[in-house]
Write a protein that binds this DNA or RNA. Structure first.
Lengths: 169, 169
DNA sequence: CTTGCTGCAAAAGTTTTGCACACGT
DNA sequence: ACGTGTGCAAAACTTTTGCAGCAAG
C-alpha cells in the first residue's frame, strides 16, 4: 500500500509485502464469508498494522487521513468489526468513553496497566494469568474464550509531574 | 426509605436502618465535599443497595421508576459519579455499549466471568490475583489503585440452549 | 440566606444505518 | 451481472450540560 516494490517470482503483489501473513489471513477470512477485499479494507488493515499498541476508531481514521488516504469513518467502523471477527484485532476495554482496539493476531494475550493520570497504557505479559483464567472457567463450567486484565494505577511519570507542580507552589 | 421502622434509642432514623453504614458513609463523604444529602440521592442509594450484582444507569433508573419513585436520569448519572468517588460503587467494564456499575463498599475485589451468548455475569474471588496485580504495578513503578479482570466464555446454560436448538433441526 | 441540586431539554460524542451509486469477483 | 461495499447524512444511543426554579444546611 505504501510504496511500490519489485514483485518476486510474479506471485505476490506489492500490496501484500508489508504484511503478507495478516493480509492473507484477512483475505481468507473474507472469502470464507463471501465478502470482498476492497481497497478501503486494505487501507484500514494497513493502518492497523502500522499502529503500535492500543487505539480507537477515531485515531485510526485520523491516521489514515494523515497518510493522505481517504476512508469514511463508517467504513472504518464496519471494517474493524470484521477484523475483530477475523481475530486480527481485539477489543480492549480500558475506559468507558469509547471502544479501544489492538492488533491481536498471533500475539500472546497481554494485560494492560493504565495510568489514571496520564492515560498512558503499558502492556505486560500474562502467562500465569492465562492458565488461571482457564482454570476459573472450568470451575464454573464455562467454555473459555478470552480474558481481559486491566490494572489501574499512577505511573512514575505522572507522580513526577505532580511533584514538580507541587514544588512550584 | 422503604418502610417505617421503630427508632431505637432515638438515635437513628427509619431512613437509615436498611443500610445504616453505607448511608452514613455517603453522608460523610458528601459533607466532606460540601455537598448535600438530598431526597433524590437517598432514593438512588436505596436502589443501588437493593441491587444484586452488576447494573447500568438505565436499569437503575427503571427500577426507581418501577418502585414508584421519580428521579430524572440526569440525576441518576450525576449521583452515580459521586457514589463512585465515595467508593460505594465501582465501574465495571464488561462490554462496550455502556458503563456498568456494582456496589463495591467493603467488598473484596471480584473478577467477572461473562457469558458472550447470554450476557450472564458470574463473580469469582480474586485473592491471588490481587497480589499479582500489585506486584505487576511495582515492577513497572506504578502506584496501584485497582484492577479489573474479566473472563469471556460460554456458560453451561448457553451451551445447553444451543444443543437443544440444534436437536430441533 | 447561601450554595448546591433537580428536571428538562438541548447538546455532545460515539457508533450504526438507510440509501443511491460504485466496485470486486 | 451480481451481490457487496462505500460515502454521506441522518439516526440511535448513552452520557453531559446549561438554565431557571427548588431545597438542604
Amino acid at each position: 500500500m505504501t510504496k511500490a516494490l519489485t514483485t518476486r517470482a510474479g506471485t505476490t503483489s506489492a500490496t501484500d509485502l508489508p504484511y503478507m501473513p495478516l493480509c492473507a489471513v484477512f483475505r481468507r477470512f473474507l472469502k470464507r464469508k463471501g465478502l470482498k477485499f476492497t481497497h478501503e479494507r486494505a487501507v484500514i488493515l494497513d493502518a492497523v498494522l502500522a499502529r503500535e499498541g492500543v487505539f480507537d476508531a477515531e485515531e485510526l481514521s485520523d491516521e489514515i487521513k494523515a497518510g493522505g488516504r481517504r476512508v469514511s469513518k463508517a467504513t472504518v467502523y464496519r471494517t474493524l468489526k470484521h477484523l475483530v471477527e477475523a481475530q486480527i484485532v481485539e477489543e480492549v476495554l480500558i475506559d468507558s468513553r469509547q471502544v479501544h482496539f489492538q492488533q491481536s493476531f498471533g500475539r500472546d494475550p497481554k494485560g494492560h496497566l493504565a495510568c489514571l493520570e496520564t492515560n498512558q497504557i503499558v502492556e505486560f505479559p500474562t502467562k500465569q494469568l492465562d492458565e488461571m483464567a482457564e482454570k476459573i472457567c472450568r470451575e464454573y463450567g464455562f467454555d473459555f474464550i478470552s480474558h481481559r486484565f486491566v490494572i489501574y494505577g499512577v505511573s512514575p511519570q505522572a507522580r513526577k509531574l505532580e511533584q514538580d507542580s507541587t514544588q512550584e507552589h
